[in-house]
Design a protein around this nucleic acid. Sequence first.
RNA 1: GGGCCGUUAGCUCAGCUGGCAGAGCACCGGACUUUUAAUCCGGGUGUCGUGGGUUCGAUCCCCACACGGCCCA
Length: 515
Amino acid sequence: MPDRDESPPPQPADNLSSLQANLESRRAKLGRLIARGIDPYPRRFARSCSAADAIAQFEAADAAGLPDDAPPLRLAGRITSMRVMGRAAFLDLRDATGVVQALLRRNVLGDDYALLSDLDLGDFLGVTGQMMRTRTGQPTIEATSLTILAKGMRPLPEKWHGLRDVETRYRQRYLDLIANPEVADTFVQRSRVISGIRRFLDNRGFVEVDTPILVPIPAGAHARPFITHHNALDQQLYLRIATELYLKRLIVGGLDKVYEIGRVFRNEGIDQDHNPEFTLLESYEAYADYNAVMEMVEALVSSLAQDVHGSMQIPLGAHVIDFTPPWPRLSLREELQRRSGVDIDDYPDAESLTRIARQLGLEPAPREARGRLIDKMLSVYVEPHLIQPSFLMDYPEDMSPLAKSHPDQPGYVERFEAFAAGMEIANSYTELNDPAVQRARFAAQEHLRAAYDDDEADRTDDDFLTALEYGMPPTGGLGIGIDRLVMLLTAQTTIRDVLLFPQMRVLHDESERER
RNA sequence: GGGCCGUUAGCUCAGCUGGCAGAGCACCGGACUUUUAAUCCGGGUGUCGUGGGUUCGAUCCCCACACGGCCCA
């Protein structure tokens, strides 16, 4: 053991972490810029074009053999790489369209070249100059002047390995977007999916509408709501769990073809395909039924695959999902019987179905409603097998309170769900438009809530019933979870990777938040 | 809700059986006018997630907690 008494004490003041050293260095550079009368955060910079356009135009002009007497370009972007070689330097400038390399030479730039020593990775820089080719043939702008556009005061994630830590990727998505360019591609594709849906429905004569997000009755789906309060009205309100009942009111009102793409909120757990807020498309078409909606779903999703992915076949994990229509139409009852050996019609009540579910090795809750038991059986025996796009048709009435009964199958309704990669992507009914039957169905749901402690059972909306009493035409309705659809179309396996800001637990530790 | 795994420098990651905390990138100083993860020389980074415990001694073993991931419900 060495005697510690004579060893020098540590020097806390001199020991800076690498982050502190980096921040200090950037602050010093900022100070030098300001001291030289340079605004490190100017108000504007008139770009002549994007990085991608600069390169494309240069290649085109070069191919046409034009002499390079073109006017100088003004390009701008974030510095993502710097290769400094004394009296010359190459910088990579990145914007949303790509990367363009800039060559800085001291004899060309003169005094402007001194700016180089106060630049860091992550700064935004504007460059004026002509496009030229380097020795290796790379299109490059040779700078005749430099303008700092925004000084970056923190170091970026490492340029080669990117940002891997998933927690940081989601909490600070901007860093993910900077460090991992393929992430930005996914969100551009998401935007294309949504605009493609709008185009598709608009072309078919649908009207896009906005209905309330703050609602007095959270009806229209099986889900627990988020609860809030309006002070001036002194009234409890909920965040909507669906848009269904408001859109049907608009069908009553005669709009005939309506849709909404909007956020809905369900107070549930978070996993690979659930986020408490998600984006839902709902559409309603008067005089259509669920068969017509099925054809529309095939046409919509396959055209989106073609538009966004460039093909109807999309590789996803071990599978290639082929969205080419038509998709198989499968009977729910038959599929469940084929996969589990149980014909649900043999078990007409919750008690008998609970017994057979136990025999199958499922673990139903002590008092579980029949519809929920069937839902559980589907998710175990049927849904995981629905890899290729397919429709599961004709659901039991007790899990579908808003759907019209099936004419040939008592106890069933005209409802389908579409599945792909084992995931539900669409839900549709021939809408129930008989106000008396709807009232009875709501009552049955309220009974389930009370008798089975089912706090996800649907809720009675009397104002909606009044609307139905004025008359709603035969209508085909549809709901599509946009996030899951985007997952399929962009080959992502977690919903977090198609949500820019997935829900995360708030950090309480000050030092962690300070990162 | 339960189980398992993870948390080390700004980032990406090593760290053996408990014995002075490591690399690359980034950063700082120097050289360098066509680089491409530029190169070469030199420099030092730290609340080892947090709080307890065991121990002469804990990044390492134990307990609790926080956050994240995966699996199950």
